[in-house]
Design a protein around this nucleic acid. Sequence first.
RNA 1: GCUCCGGUAGUGUAGUCCGGCCAAUCAUUCCGGCCUUUCGAGCCGAAGACUCGGGUUCGAAUCCCGGCCGGAGCACCA
Length: 536
Amino acid sequence: MGECPQLRSDPNAVSEALENIIPEIAKGNPETWEAKLSEIAPELIEALSVKKEPDKGLKPLEGAENGKVVMRFAPNPNGPATLGSARGMVVNSEYVKMYNGKFVLRFDDTDPDIKRPMLEAYDWYLDDFKWLGVVPDQVVYASDHFPMYYDYARKLIEMGKAYVCFCKGEDFKRFKDAKQACPHRDTSPEENLMHWEKMLAGEYEDQQAVLRIKTDIKHKDPALRDWGAFRIRKMSHPRPEIGNKYVVWPLLDFAGAIEDHELGMTHIIRGKDLIDSEKRQGYIYKYFGWKYPRTTHWGRVKIHEFGKFSTSTLRKAIEAGEYSGWDDPRLPTIRAIRRRGIQAEALKKFMIEMGVGMTDVSISMESLYAENRKIVDPIANRYFFVWDPVELEITDSKPTVAKLPLHPTDHARGFREIAVGNKVLVCTEDVEKLEVGSVIRLKDFCNIEITSLSPLQAKLSDVSLEALKKAKAKIIHWVPLEGINVKVRGPEGDLKGIGEQGIATELDNIVQFERFGFCRIDTVSEEEIVAYFAHK
RNA sequence: GCUCCGGUAGUGUAGUCCGGCCAAUCAUUCCGGCCUUUCGAGCCGAAGACUCGGGUUCGAAUCCCGGCCGGAGCACCA
């Protein structure tokens, strides 16, 4: 009936007809149904094989016109981008790409105190965007725009829409909660202007005065009543070009409101923690007669493996020496997962798959790993890495060169050649359950039969590989005695072992240590290779 | 306390605006099986969900009301 509106004129008759026909149809089977269908309505046969293909990727942006979309990502660079930031980075930039619009990276860096920007972090954001393959059309620093903010503030004061408030924080809260105007609310614009000039001139102390936007002090939502727009903080800004220039700092809702308008934002997508900003900033937009961008919000993201984290708690832990830095593989920063070899494309898919729902999500890194594995499996060369190594002597073998494929299915990639004497190293856990007489396979090398457990010795076995496989014998990996020290750093901590020499040629590449997992080769030196673990 | 928002398989999503193409999509996870000289990949199969209660309607995941649960805001943080 959805397709044939004319049937709706008499729905009772339709359902009655269905009641009668269904038992009859149920007597048949799929084959007779199909035969019958091709008899009475062959054109519908095709429809049977058409699978419902849901829309992949991001849903269309409401009101978006090709070429006219302007969006931004506006972080405070008080630390590096985290997995949480990645959502904003990916979703916003993808939409801009979708509509051939303009993408702005704006640093909302106007708090020198509680969320003080970190000088290095500005570049880290740029770098992470580069990695994502995103080139912002414009990079903006809110801290460059104090004069503009001051201008608009002055206008609002002149319009009687803003006032300098000298209440102590808790006093103002009391007034506000009681829906009462504080004693400063009705000060004349002239007087406010004077106080404002004094604020700017540094004549008031920290916390002594604040500029408020006049909204509706009786509004039923307390979040909207006369919110603060500027405060005094006699501190320097970490950016040298700003330094000690200013003592009056704009708050987020004010700076953001001005910026979004000045930059011509058409759409804003951000976390729902900022959902009230729209209503607060709406007053400014109304006073100036501006049009507010269309907004979309998403819920909180929690990642199973990392639990709750915030930039400030991470910073403390790093400063306390619990982590090696912001790219420690145990951390949920973009820098860390990059270092582990997670591909930008995998992160993008992961974020896009998550969508922009308002519901809070609790997602597992497994999905990210699954995406990454799909990308990395075909391109990663294979190597052997033996952890917890133990020596195994093959008493009757002669020195030889083993030839192993770099990739299990793509042999065109070539081979690795390993010179082996009559001793190899294997993982202790692989030989623990063996007994004398056990026959196993050294992968891509030879079959052996254990002849002694201590010392661990074996002899070449004449059992064929086929027979061995049939018997489901163990196939283990190994390295020659002449291996390189390898340290794998991962979310679960460090693991040391020996790897084959060829790994040294894979600096910066993602490889698979067989039977272990995918790793990115991070550093190579004479004495040690450091690999970062991505996932199994 | 006041205000706002949300609730589809273990997880994440599609569908909700505009009620019938929904016996509800896709992915991941898990479980079987096949294949493979890796514990990787691939292939086949299976399992698994509309928060609850009312109402409107011929018909509700979809609309309305209420409950329950969860989240956010009420900062001189972003």
